[in-house]
Computed example of a mutant assay.
Amino acid sequence: MATSLRTIGSTAVRTLLDDQQNPVLLPATPTRVVSIVPSLTESVAATDARLLVGATDWCTHPADLEVTRVRGPKNPDLERIAGLAPDVVLANAEENRAVDLDALRAAGIAVWVTAPATVGEALDSLDRMLSAITGSSPSWLGAARETWRTPYAGPRRRAVIPIWRRPWMALGRDTFAGDLLARLGIDNVLADSAERYPRIELDALPPYDLVVLPDEPYAFSADDGPEAFAAPALCVSGRHLTWYGPSLVEARAVLSGQLA
């Protein structure tokens, strides 16, 4: 919701609040967007690709996206971003460094930060962000809401969900991916961890039935990961597990099949 509307020069601008309640000054009709989060890049591209002028090297969806690349989420090329003269830069509290976002703001660039920790929060966050940028909520977002509306009603399993090795790290408390898996009947045994992404000792884990191995951020595969565990290990799509955007429309079906 806009908190104010005024005119600067000949441009009508609005002040809105992002997920962290930061005020974001946007033109009434943004036309130049830089995204430094892969899932947000895909979200804008699926809604109105004409808005995107810059994205990271890690923004792989859609595959045919032709925009200026600005390095990665953790080391964005701030000078190149500024040179693109964006109306707004889309970021995420977890994926991007606060020091980089502060530097963009100090350069007079509007930054919109998302910070969802559940599927429901992600859907609402995307609705606010895309409505602020495009003026409406896209049809794919409605389809994603419908996909996740029905609660899971089958048997439940306890799982450990590694996200890295050397050192081993896993999903802990309050994560989007953990909430998504819970909606598929997979309960994270480290959900009560003091950290969101704790380092783990494999011989000190609580009892679990299953190991879920996504192919990102670490590229776990049938030949890299399952051999370290005595319990059954299943490889799943990291994009469908950790990205929030158009992938949520098919994520329930994709992951349910991979976890069967």
Rank of each mutant, 00 (worst) to 15 (best):
L40W: 00
V99H: 12
D87F: 01
V13F: 04
L65F: 07
E227M: 11
A115S: 15
D100V: 01
A204E: 12
A110N: 01
V70L: 03
R128E: 07
L40Y: 02
R173E: 06
G83L: 06
L51A: 08
P38E: 04
A159N: 04
V160H: 02
V24Q: 07
K74C: 08
E66I: 12
W140E: 02
I200E: 06
P162S: 09
C59D: 12
E42Q: 13
R80T: 15
P162G: 09
A177D: 04
L241S: 08
N92V: 09
D174T: 14
N92F: 08
T175C: 06
H61C: 10
L255T: 03
Q258W: 06
Q258M: 09
L210S: 08
R105G: 00
F176M: 01
A63F: 05
D100Q: 06
L213D: 03
A82M: 07
A159F: 05
V111D: 01
T60K: 10
S237G: 10
N22G: 10
V13C: 06
G185P: 03
L104N: 00
L181V: 03
I200R: 09
H240L: 11
D57L: 12
T7M: 14
A2Q: 14
R157L: 13
G135L: 10
E66N: 12
W164C: 11
D102V: 12
N96I: 05
V119N: 02
A93D: 15
V53C: 13
R199A: 15
R199Y: 14
P23E: 05
A103V: 06
T11H: 09
I200K: 05
V111L: 01
D57A: 10
V24D: 04
P86D: 00
G83Q: 12
P155V: 10
L255G: 03
Q20I: 14
S256T: 15
A103F: 05
G178S: 04
P30K: 03
I186E: 04
V249E: 02
V33K: 05
G178H: 01
R239E: 15
D100S: 08
A170R: 05
A103T: 13
V44E: 02
P246K: 00
A12R: 13
A12F: 08
V189H: 02
V160W: 00
A222W: 11
V113L: 05
Y218G: 08
A253K: 09
T47Y: 03
A222M: 11
L5M: 15
I200D: 06
P167E: 06
V53T: 13
E216Q: 13
A45R: 00
L184F: 08
G120A: 13
A12S: 12
Y244I: 03
A63I: 07
Q21T: 13
P232S: 08
V67K: 04
T31W: 09
S137A: 15
P198I: 01
V211Y: 01
V70C: 02
M1N: 15
G172V: 04
P207G: 09
V88Q: 05
P76N: 10
M129Y: 02
R6E: 13
